[in-house]
Write a protein that binds this DNA or RNA. Structure first.
Lengths: 230, 230
DNA sequence: GCAAAAGTGTTAGGGGTACACCCATGG
DNA sequence: CCATGGGTGTACCCCTAACACTTTTGC
Protein backbone atom coordinates (compact mmCIF):
# COMPACT_ATOMS: atom_id res chain seq x y z
CA UNK A 1 0.00 0.00 0.00
CA UNK A 2 1.99 2.98 -1.25
CA UNK A 3 0.88 6.51 -0.50
CA UNK A 4 3.29 8.15 -2.92
CA UNK A 5 1.28 10.98 -4.38
CA UNK A 6 2.48 10.24 -7.88
CA UNK A 7 1.90 6.50 -7.79
CA UNK A 8 -1.86 6.59 -8.15
CA UNK A 9 -4.11 7.01 -11.14
CA UNK A 10 -6.52 9.96 -11.02
CA UNK A 11 -10.20 9.06 -10.99
CA UNK A 12 -13.39 11.01 -11.16
CA UNK A 13 -15.69 10.21 -8.24
CA UNK A 14 -19.42 10.67 -8.64
CA UNK A 15 -22.65 9.83 -6.86
CA UNK A 16 -25.73 8.30 -8.48
CA UNK A 17 -29.15 8.42 -6.83
CA UNK A 18 -31.99 5.92 -6.98
CA UNK A 19 -34.86 7.99 -5.56
CA UNK A 20 -38.12 6.12 -4.90
CA UNK A 21 -41.55 7.29 -3.93
CA UNK A 22 -45.00 5.73 -3.60
CA UNK A 23 -47.88 7.63 -5.16
CA UNK A 24 -51.36 6.51 -6.14
CA UNK A 25 -50.50 2.90 -5.41
CA UNK A 26 -47.53 2.88 -7.77
CA UNK A 27 -43.82 2.74 -7.01
CA UNK A 28 -41.97 5.48 -8.87
CA UNK A 29 -38.36 6.35 -9.44
CA UNK A 30 -36.86 9.71 -10.34
CA UNK A 31 -35.12 9.70 -13.72
CA UNK A 32 -33.57 12.37 -15.91
CA UNK A 33 -33.39 12.36 -19.66
CA UNK A 34 -29.82 12.97 -20.70
CA UNK A 35 -29.18 16.08 -22.76
CA UNK A 36 -25.60 15.31 -23.76
CA UNK A 37 -23.57 12.50 -25.24
CA UNK A 38 -23.00 9.77 -24.47
CA UNK A 39 -26.46 8.26 -24.22
CA UNK A 40 -28.09 11.59 -25.15
CA UNK A 41 -31.88 11.26 -25.06
CA UNK A 42 -31.86 8.19 -22.81
CA UNK A 43 -33.12 7.98 -19.25
CA UNK A 44 -30.53 7.89 -16.45
CA UNK A 45 -30.32 8.19 -12.69
CA UNK A 46 -29.68 11.67 -11.29
CA UNK A 47 -26.19 12.22 -9.98
CA UNK A 48 -23.07 14.32 -10.15
CA UNK A 49 -19.44 14.65 -9.22
CA UNK A 50 -18.03 15.19 -5.76
CA UNK A 51 -16.83 18.68 -4.95
CA UNK A 52 -13.37 19.07 -3.44
CA UNK A 53 -14.41 19.44 0.19
CA UNK A 54 -17.50 17.25 0.42
CA UNK A 55 -18.01 13.59 1.22
CA UNK A 56 -20.09 11.30 -0.97
CA UNK A 57 -22.88 11.58 1.61
CA UNK A 58 -22.80 15.36 1.30
CA UNK A 59 -22.82 15.20 -2.48
CA UNK A 60 -25.75 12.80 -2.50
CA UNK A 61 -27.76 15.02 -0.14
CA UNK A 62 -26.97 18.06 -2.26
CA UNK A 63 -27.97 16.36 -5.50
CA UNK A 64 -31.15 15.07 -3.92
CA UNK A 65 -32.14 18.55 -2.78
CA UNK A 66 -31.26 20.05 -6.16
CA UNK A 67 -33.22 17.52 -8.19
CA UNK A 68 -36.29 17.06 -6.01
CA UNK A 69 -36.53 20.25 -3.96
CA UNK A 70 -36.88 18.07 -0.85
CA UNK A 71 -34.78 19.13 2.16
CA UNK A 72 -32.32 16.39 3.23
CA UNK A 73 -33.85 16.01 6.71
CA UNK A 74 -37.25 15.14 5.28
CA UNK A 75 -36.26 11.91 3.56
CA UNK A 76 -34.21 8.79 3.94
CA UNK A 77 -30.82 8.66 2.21
CA UNK A 78 -28.56 5.61 2.41
CA UNK A 79 -25.47 4.40 0.65
CA UNK A 80 -26.11 1.44 -1.66
CA UNK A 81 -22.75 0.36 -3.08
CA UNK A 82 -19.96 1.57 -5.34
CA UNK A 83 -19.66 0.80 -9.04
CA UNK A 84 -16.17 0.92 -10.46
CA UNK A 85 -15.91 -1.18 -13.62
CA UNK A 86 -13.29 0.43 -15.88
CA UNK A 87 -15.56 0.75 -18.91
CA UNK A 88 -18.73 1.98 -17.24
CA UNK A 89 -18.27 5.49 -18.63
CA UNK A 90 -16.87 5.53 -22.19
CA UNK A 91 -14.96 8.81 -21.85
CA UNK A 92 -12.99 8.45 -18.65
CA UNK A 93 -12.57 6.54 -15.44
CA UNK A 94 -15.53 7.30 -13.19
CA UNK A 95 -16.07 5.55 -9.87
CA UNK A 96 -19.63 6.07 -8.71
CA UNK A 97 -20.97 5.75 -5.18
CA UNK A 98 -24.66 4.91 -5.53
CA UNK A 99 -27.27 6.00 -2.98
CA UNK A 100 -30.85 5.00 -2.38
CA UNK A 101 -33.30 7.72 -1.32
CA UNK A 102 -36.91 7.45 -0.18
CA UNK A 103 -39.17 10.48 -0.29
CA UNK A 104 -42.78 10.68 0.96
CA UNK A 105 -44.72 13.06 -1.26
CA UNK A 106 -42.55 14.69 -3.86
CA UNK A 107 -43.10 17.97 -5.65
CA UNK A 108 -42.50 18.05 -9.38
CA UNK A 109 -38.82 17.45 -10.10
CA UNK A 110 -36.63 20.21 -11.45
CA UNK A 111 -34.72 19.69 -14.63
CA UNK A 112 -31.10 20.65 -14.09
CA UNK A 113 -29.01 22.62 -16.51
CA UNK A 114 -27.58 19.46 -18.02
CA UNK A 115 -30.75 17.35 -17.97
CA UNK A 116 -33.27 17.82 -20.73
CA UNK A 117 -36.06 16.53 -18.53
CA UNK A 118 -36.68 15.10 -15.06
CA UNK A 119 -39.65 12.82 -14.30
CA UNK A 120 -41.12 10.34 -11.86
CA UNK A 121 -41.32 7.10 -13.83
CA UNK A 122 -43.40 4.07 -12.81
CA UNK A 123 -41.53 0.98 -11.64
CA UNK A 124 -40.55 -1.18 -13.39
CA UNK A 125 -39.05 1.12 -16.00
CA UNK A 126 -39.90 -0.04 -19.50
CA UNK A 127 -36.73 0.88 -21.31
CA UNK A 128 -33.09 0.36 -20.42
CA UNK A 129 -31.16 3.18 -18.79
CA UNK A 130 -27.85 4.82 -19.66
CA UNK A 131 -24.48 3.52 -18.44
CA UNK A 132 -24.86 0.74 -15.83
CA UNK A 133 -27.86 2.41 -14.26
CA UNK A 134 -30.11 -0.58 -14.92
CA UNK A 135 -27.98 -2.63 -12.56
CA UNK A 136 -27.82 0.15 -9.96
CA UNK A 137 -31.58 0.61 -10.01
CA UNK A 138 -32.20 -3.13 -9.71
CA UNK A 139 -29.82 -3.35 -6.75
CA UNK A 140 -31.51 -0.37 -5.11
CA UNK A 141 -34.99 -1.84 -5.50
CA UNK A 142 -33.88 -5.16 -4.06
CA UNK A 143 -32.27 -3.38 -1.11
CA UNK A 144 -35.38 -1.35 -0.37
CA UNK A 145 -37.59 -4.43 -0.50
CA UNK A 146 -35.30 -6.29 1.87
CA UNK A 147 -35.01 -3.38 4.30
CA UNK A 148 -38.76 -3.12 4.64
CA UNK A 149 -38.65 -6.51 6.32
CA UNK A 150 -36.44 -5.75 9.26
CA UNK A 151 -36.37 -1.94 9.60
CA UNK A 152 -38.95 0.77 10.03
CA UNK A 153 -37.98 2.19 6.65
CA UNK A 154 -41.49 2.04 5.20
CA UNK A 155 -42.44 5.13 7.20
CA UNK A 156 -39.97 7.10 5.06
CA UNK A 157 -42.40 6.68 2.15
CA UNK A 158 -45.24 8.14 4.22
CA UNK A 159 -46.04 11.71 5.24
CA UNK A 160 -45.33 12.69 8.88
CA UNK A 161 -48.77 11.46 9.93
CA UNK A 162 -50.28 8.45 8.20
CA UNK A 163 -52.81 5.63 8.55
CA UNK A 164 -52.05 1.94 8.78
CA UNK A 165 -53.78 1.52 5.43
CA UNK A 166 -51.28 3.88 3.83
CA UNK A 167 -48.39 2.07 5.49
CA UNK A 168 -49.69 -1.26 4.24
CA UNK A 169 -50.00 0.19 0.74
CA UNK A 170 -46.28 1.00 0.85
CA UNK A 171 -45.41 -2.63 1.61
CA UNK A 172 -47.78 -3.95 -1.02
CA UNK A 173 -46.53 -1.54 -3.64
CA UNK A 174 -42.82 -2.16 -3.09
CA UNK A 175 -43.16 -5.92 -2.71
CA UNK A 176 -45.82 -6.29 -5.38
CA UNK A 177 -47.88 -8.62 -3.19
CA UNK A 178 -51.13 -8.33 -1.25
CA UNK A 179 -51.03 -8.58 2.55
CA UNK A 180 -53.69 -9.65 5.00
CA UNK A 181 -54.94 -6.45 6.58
CA UNK A 182 -55.86 -7.74 10.07
CA UNK A 183 -52.53 -9.52 10.45
CA UNK A 184 -50.56 -6.55 9.12
CA UNK A 185 -52.24 -4.31 11.66
CA UNK A 186 -51.45 -6.63 14.57
CA UNK A 187 -47.83 -7.09 13.57
CA UNK A 188 -47.17 -3.39 13.18
CA UNK A 189 -48.78 -2.50 16.51
CA UNK A 190 -47.02 -5.39 18.27
CA UNK A 191 -43.58 -4.21 17.12
CA UNK A 192 -42.28 -1.74 19.72
CA UNK A 193 -41.23 1.61 18.31
CA UNK A 194 -42.47 1.04 14.78
CA UNK A 195 -45.38 3.50 14.93
CA UNK A 196 -46.93 5.70 17.61
CA UNK A 197 -50.58 6.77 17.79
CA UNK A 198 -51.48 10.46 17.47
CA UNK A 199 -54.82 12.09 18.24
CA UNK A 200 -57.47 13.19 15.73
CA UNK A 201 -59.30 10.95 13.32
CA UNK A 202 -59.85 12.46 9.89
CA UNK A 203 -60.49 10.23 6.91
CA UNK A 204 -57.37 9.71 4.86
CA UNK A 205 -57.98 7.04 2.23
CA UNK A 206 -60.79 6.78 -0.32
CA UNK A 207 -63.94 8.83 -0.01
CA UNK A 208 -65.93 6.11 1.75
CA UNK A 209 -65.39 3.88 4.75
CA UNK A 210 -64.64 4.26 8.42
CA UNK A 211 -62.11 6.99 9.31
CA UNK A 212 -58.73 5.54 10.19
CA UNK A 213 -56.64 6.24 13.27
CA UNK A 214 -53.47 8.24 12.66
CA UNK A 215 -49.90 7.29 13.48
CA UNK A 216 -46.41 8.70 13.15
CA UNK A 217 -43.07 6.94 12.81
CA UNK A 218 -41.97 5.49 16.12
CA UNK A 219 -38.26 6.06 15.63
CA UNK A 220 -37.22 2.40 15.79
CA UNK A 221 -34.56 1.46 13.25
CA UNK A 222 -34.72 -2.33 13.66
CA UNK A 223 -37.98 -4.28 13.81
CA UNK A 224 -38.39 -7.01 16.42
CA UNK A 225 -39.93 -9.20 15.27
CA UNK A 226 -39.37 -8.50 11.55
CA UNK A 227 -42.20 -8.17 9.05
CA UNK A 228 -41.29 -10.86 6.55
CA UNK A 229 -42.31 -11.05 2.91
CA UNK A 230 -44.88 -13.78 2.18
CA UNK B 1 -24.45 16.35 -13.84
CA UNK B 2 -21.58 17.69 -15.94
CA UNK B 3 -19.18 15.34 -17.64
CA UNK B 4 -16.70 18.06 -18.63
CA UNK B 5 -13.33 16.43 -18.12
CA UNK B 6 -11.94 19.54 -16.49
CA UNK B 7 -14.82 20.16 -14.13
CA UNK B 8 -14.04 17.41 -11.64
CA UNK B 9 -11.57 17.21 -8.84
CA UNK B 10 -9.05 14.33 -9.07
CA UNK B 11 -9.28 11.74 -6.32
CA UNK B 12 -7.24 8.75 -5.33
CA UNK B 13 -9.37 5.61 -5.11
CA UNK B 14 -8.27 2.79 -2.82
CA UNK B 15 -9.61 -0.45 -1.38
CA UNK B 16 -9.40 -1.48 2.28
CA UNK B 17 -9.89 -5.07 3.39
CA UNK B 18 -11.39 -6.45 6.60
CA UNK B 19 -10.28 -10.09 6.43
CA UNK B 20 -11.73 -12.41 9.07
CA UNK B 21 -10.96 -16.00 10.00
CA UNK B 22 -11.94 -18.37 12.81
CA UNK B 23 -9.14 -20.33 14.41
CA UNK B 24 -8.96 -22.16 17.74
CA UNK B 25 -12.32 -20.79 18.77
CA UNK B 26 -11.28 -17.17 18.29
CA UNK B 27 -12.31 -14.65 15.64
CA UNK B 28 -9.28 -13.04 14.06
CA UNK B 29 -8.71 -10.18 11.68
CA UNK B 30 -5.74 -9.54 9.41
CA UNK B 31 -3.88 -6.33 10.24
CA UNK B 32 -0.66 -4.75 9.06
CA UNK B 33 1.61 -2.55 11.08
CA UNK B 34 2.27 0.64 9.12
CA UNK B 35 5.88 1.30 8.21
CA UNK B 36 5.44 4.86 6.98
CA UNK B 37 3.91 8.12 8.10
CA UNK B 38 1.23 8.97 8.81
CA UNK B 39 0.34 6.61 11.62
CA UNK B 40 3.71 4.85 11.34
CA UNK B 41 3.89 1.95 13.79
CA UNK B 42 0.11 1.66 14.18
CA UNK B 43 -2.08 -1.21 13.07
CA UNK B 44 -4.18 -0.72 9.95
CA UNK B 45 -6.31 -2.69 7.53
CA UNK B 46 -4.55 -4.05 4.44
CA UNK B 47 -5.38 -2.23 1.23
CA UNK B 48 -4.07 -0.34 -1.74
CA UNK B 49 -4.83 1.86 -4.69
CA UNK B 50 -6.72 0.89 -7.79
CA UNK B 51 -4.67 0.30 -10.89
CA UNK B 52 -5.73 2.05 -14.11
CA UNK B 53 -7.53 -0.89 -15.72
CA UNK B 54 -8.99 -2.72 -12.75
CA UNK B 55 -12.27 -2.43 -10.87
CA UNK B 56 -12.45 -2.14 -7.10
CA UNK B 57 -13.45 -5.82 -6.98
CA UNK B 58 -10.32 -6.74 -8.94
CA UNK B 59 -8.12 -4.62 -6.70
CA UNK B 60 -9.61 -6.16 -3.57
CA UNK B 61 -9.07 -9.69 -4.89
CA UNK B 62 -5.50 -8.86 -5.85
CA UNK B 63 -4.69 -7.32 -2.48
CA UNK B 64 -6.26 -10.27 -0.69
CA UNK B 65 -4.13 -12.73 -2.64
CA UNK B 66 -0.99 -10.66 -2.10
CA UNK B 67 -1.45 -10.27 1.64
CA UNK B 68 -2.75 -13.72 2.56
CA UNK B 69 -1.52 -16.03 -0.18
CA UNK B 70 -5.09 -17.33 -0.53
CA UNK B 71 -6.39 -17.69 -4.09
CA UNK B 72 -9.48 -15.51 -4.71
CA UNK B 73 -11.72 -18.50 -5.52
CA UNK B 74 -11.06 -20.08 -2.13
CA UNK B 75 -12.67 -17.39 -0.03
CA UNK B 76 -15.60 -15.04 0.22
CA UNK B 77 -15.07 -11.41 -0.82
CA UNK B 78 -17.84 -8.83 -0.64
CA UNK B 79 -18.11 -5.09 -0.89
CA UNK B 80 -18.89 -3.41 2.43
CA UNK B 81 -19.30 0.30 1.74
CA UNK B 82 -17.33 3.36 0.64
CA UNK B 83 -15.68 5.85 2.98
CA UNK B 84 -15.15 9.31 1.55
CA UNK B 85 -14.86 11.89 4.33
CA UNK B 86 -12.55 14.67 3.10
CA UNK B 87 -10.12 14.48 6.02
CA UNK B 88 -9.81 10.71 6.37
CA UNK B 89 -6.27 10.76 4.93
CA UNK B 90 -4.25 13.78 6.06
CA UNK B 91 -2.16 14.06 2.90
CA UNK B 92 -4.68 13.97 0.07
CA UNK B 93 -8.19 13.14 -0.96
CA UNK B 94 -8.60 9.35 -0.81
CA UNK B 95 -11.93 7.64 -1.39
CA UNK B 96 -11.78 4.08 -0.14
CA UNK B 97 -14.04 1.20 -1.13
CA UNK B 98 -14.00 -1.23 1.81
CA UNK B 99 -14.39 -5.00 1.38
CA UNK B 100 -15.09 -7.80 3.80
CA UNK B 101 -13.30 -11.11 3.22
CA UNK B 102 -13.76 -14.48 4.94
CA UNK B 103 -11.04 -17.11 4.73
CA UNK B 104 -11.19 -20.64 6.13
CA UNK B 105 -7.72 -21.68 7.29
CA UNK B 106 -5.14 -19.06 6.51
CA UNK B 107 -1.41 -19.49 6.06
CA UNK B 108 0.89 -17.01 7.75
CA UNK B 109 0.41 -13.56 6.22
CA UNK B 110 3.09 -11.98 4.12
CA UNK B 111 4.42 -8.60 5.05
CA UNK B 112 4.37 -6.35 1.99
CA UNK B 113 7.14 -4.00 1.01
CA UNK B 114 5.41 -1.09 2.69
CA UNK B 115 4.14 -2.93 5.77
CA UNK B 116 6.51 -3.52 8.64
CA UNK B 117 4.52 -6.53 9.81
CA UNK B 118 1.34 -8.46 9.01
CA UNK B 119 -0.51 -10.51 11.65
CA UNK B 120 -3.77 -12.22 12.55
CA UNK B 121 -5.05 -10.30 15.57
CA UNK B 122 -7.76 -11.54 17.94
CA UNK B 123 -11.11 -9.80 17.83
CA UNK B 124 -11.84 -7.40 19.39
CA UNK B 125 -8.63 -5.52 18.66
CA UNK B 126 -7.26 -3.89 21.79
CA UNK B 127 -5.85 -0.70 20.36
CA UNK B 128 -7.25 1.79 17.91
CA UNK B 129 -6.32 1.54 14.24
CA UNK B 130 -4.93 4.08 11.79
CA UNK B 131 -7.15 6.43 9.72
CA UNK B 132 -10.86 5.58 10.04
CA UNK B 133 -10.15 1.85 10.09
CA UNK B 134 -11.78 1.37 13.49
CA UNK B 135 -15.11 2.36 11.97
CA UNK B 136 -14.56 0.21 8.87
CA UNK B 137 -13.69 -2.82 10.98
CA UNK B 138 -16.70 -2.32 13.24
CA UNK B 139 -19.00 -2.04 10.23
CA UNK B 140 -17.48 -5.17 8.71
CA UNK B 141 -17.94 -7.19 11.89
CA UNK B 142 -21.55 -6.10 12.22
CA UNK B 143 -22.20 -7.03 8.59
CA UNK B 144 -20.66 -10.48 8.99
CA UNK B 145 -22.68 -11.18 12.11
CA UNK B 146 -25.89 -10.13 10.40
CA UNK B 147 -25.17 -12.11 7.24
CA UNK B 148 -24.69 -15.32 9.20
CA UNK B 149 -28.38 -15.08 10.07
CA UNK B 150 -29.89 -15.18 6.63
CA UNK B 151 -27.17 -16.50 4.30
CA UNK B 152 -24.98 -19.59 4.14
CA UNK B 153 -21.92 -17.42 4.66
CA UNK B 154 -20.69 -19.32 7.71
CA UNK B 155 -19.38 -22.10 5.46
CA UNK B 156 -16.87 -19.60 4.05
CA UNK B 157 -15.10 -19.78 7.43
CA UNK B 158 -14.88 -23.57 7.21
CA UNK B 159 -12.62 -25.85 5.16
CA UNK B 160 -14.21 -27.55 2.12
CA UNK B 161 -15.35 -30.46 4.31
CA UNK B 162 -16.44 -29.77 7.87
CA UNK B 163 -18.53 -31.07 10.76
CA UNK B 164 -21.63 -29.47 12.20
CA UNK B 165 -19.67 -28.88 15.39
CA UNK B 166 -17.18 -26.78 13.48
CA UNK B 167 -19.96 -24.86 11.75
CA UNK B 168 -21.61 -24.19 15.10
CA UNK B 169 -18.29 -22.97 16.49
CA UNK B 170 -18.20 -20.37 13.70
CA UNK B 171 -21.59 -19.00 14.73
CA UNK B 172 -20.70 -19.01 18.39
CA UNK B 173 -17.36 -17.33 17.78
CA UNK B 174 -18.67 -14.55 15.54
CA UNK B 175 -21.78 -13.88 17.61
CA UNK B 176 -20.07 -14.38 20.95
CA UNK B 177 -22.99 -16.46 22.25
CA UNK B 178 -23.55 -20.15 22.99
CA UNK B 179 -26.09 -22.07 20.90
CA UNK B 180 -28.11 -25.17 21.73
CA UNK B 181 -26.43 -27.99 19.83
CA UNK B 182 -29.48 -30.19 19.09
CA UNK B 183 -31.49 -27.24 17.84
CA UNK B 184 -28.62 -25.90 15.77
CA UNK B 185 -28.24 -29.26 14.10
CA UNK B 186 -31.92 -29.50 13.23
CA UNK B 187 -32.14 -25.99 11.89
CA UNK B 188 -29.10 -26.40 9.65
CA UNK B 189 -30.29 -29.72 8.25
CA UNK B 190 -33.84 -28.41 7.79
CA UNK B 191 -32.64 -25.49 5.69
CA UNK B 192 -32.51 -26.64 2.05
CA UNK B 193 -29.17 -26.09 0.34
CA UNK B 194 -27.27 -24.97 3.42
CA UNK B 195 -25.07 -28.08 3.78
CA UNK B 196 -24.81 -31.43 1.98
CA UNK B 197 -23.61 -34.69 3.54
CA UNK B 198 -20.44 -36.36 2.22
CA UNK B 199 -19.20 -39.91 2.92
CA UNK B 200 -16.47 -40.90 5.40
CA UNK B 201 -16.52 -40.30 9.12
CA UNK B 202 -13.17 -39.38 10.62
CA UNK B 203 -13.04 -37.54 13.91
CA UNK B 204 -12.53 -33.85 13.43
CA UNK B 205 -12.86 -32.06 16.75
CA UNK B 206 -11.16 -32.79 20.09
CA UNK B 207 -9.40 -36.12 20.70
CA UNK B 208 -12.39 -37.77 22.37
CA UNK B 209 -16.03 -38.36 21.61
CA UNK B 210 -18.05 -39.85 18.79
CA UNK B 211 -16.76 -39.18 15.26
CA UNK B 212 -18.82 -36.55 13.52
CA UNK B 213 -20.47 -36.79 10.10
CA UNK B 214 -18.94 -34.60 7.40
CA UNK B 215 -20.63 -31.96 5.28
CA UNK B 216 -19.78 -29.51 2.53
CA UNK B 217 -21.35 -26.16 1.66
CA UNK B 218 -24.69 -26.67 -0.10
CA UNK B 219 -24.42 -23.67 -2.38
CA UNK B 220 -27.49 -21.84 -1.09
CA UNK B 221 -27.00 -18.10 -0.76
CA UNK B 222 -30.17 -17.30 1.21
CA UNK B 223 -31.36 -19.33 4.19
CA UNK B 224 -35.06 -20.24 4.47
CA UNK B 225 -35.84 -20.13 7.28
CA UNK B 226 -33.06 -17.90 8.64
CA UNK B 227 -30.89 -18.84 11.61
CA UNK B 228 -31.54 -15.94 13.95
CA UNK B 229 -29.30 -14.72 16.75
CA UNK B 230 -30.69 -15.52 20.23
C1' DG C 1 -79.61 -0.38 2.24
C1' DC C 2 -75.26 -1.11 0.18
C1' DA C 3 -70.42 -0.66 -0.73
C1' DA C 4 -66.04 0.39 1.18
C1' DA C 5 -62.69 0.81 4.50
C1' DA C 6 -61.33 0.15 9.55
C1' DG C 7 -60.99 -2.73 13.31
C1' DT C 8 -61.69 -7.33 16.41
C1' DG C 9 -61.89 -12.34 17.21
C1' DT C 10 -60.73 -17.12 16.64
C1' DT C 11 -58.51 -21.23 15.32
C1' DA C 12 -55.06 -24.53 13.40
C1' DG C 13 -50.43 -25.31 12.33
C1' DG C 14 -45.26 -24.53 12.12
C1' DG C 15 -41.14 -23.41 14.08
C1' DG C 16 -38.29 -22.28 18.04
C1' DT C 17 -36.73 -23.27 22.86
C1' DA C 18 -35.45 -25.94 26.49
C1' DC C 19 -34.65 -29.86 27.95
C1' DA C 20 -33.87 -35.20 28.71
C1' DC C 21 -31.83 -38.99 26.77
C1' DC C 22 -28.96 -42.40 23.96
C1' DC C 23 -24.61 -43.48 21.11
C1' DA C 24 -19.70 -43.83 20.12
C1' DT C 25 -14.97 -43.13 21.31
C1' DG C 26 -10.43 -42.53 24.08
C1' DG C 27 -8.20 -43.00 28.18
C1' DC D 1 -16.33 -46.82 33.62
C1' DC D 2 -16.17 -42.18 32.92
C1' DA D 3 -15.49 -37.93 30.41
C1' DT D 4 -16.36 -35.93 25.98
C1' DG D 5 -18.57 -34.85 21.92
C1' DG D 6 -22.26 -36.52 18.32
C1' DG D 7 -27.00 -37.45 17.55
C1' DT D 8 -32.35 -38.20 18.61
C1' DG D 9 -36.78 -37.39 20.92
C1' DT D 10 -40.26 -34.50 22.93
C1' DA D 11 -43.25 -31.17 25.23
C1' DC D 12 -44.40 -26.38 25.44
C1' DC D 13 -45.03 -21.83 23.67
C1' DC D 14 -45.34 -18.16 20.65
C1' DC D 15 -46.00 -16.43 16.28
C1' DT D 16 -48.37 -16.56 12.03
C1' DA D 17 -51.69 -17.38 8.33
C1' DA D 18 -56.31 -17.69 7.20
C1' DC D 19 -60.77 -16.29 7.54
C1' DA D 20 -65.18 -14.91 9.85
C1' DC D 21 -67.22 -11.07 11.80
C1' DT D 22 -68.46 -6.22 13.53
C1' DT D 23 -68.19 -1.07 13.09
C1' DT D 24 -68.37 3.33 10.82
C1' DT D 25 -68.73 6.17 7.12
C1' DG D 26 -70.56 8.10 2.08
C1' DC D 27 -73.85 7.65 -1.40
Amino acid sequence: MSYDKHAFEPFAVAVDLAVFTVRDGALRVLLIRRGEEPHAGRWALPGGFLRPAESAEDAAARELAEKTGVPPEGCHLEQLRTYSAPGRDPRMRVVSVAYTALVPDPPEPRAGTDAAEARWVDWPVGESLAFDHDAILADAHERVGAKLEYTGLATAFCPPVFTLGELQAVYETVWGTALDRPNFRRKVLATPGFVAAVGGEPRRTGGRGKPAALYRAGGAVALHPPLLRP
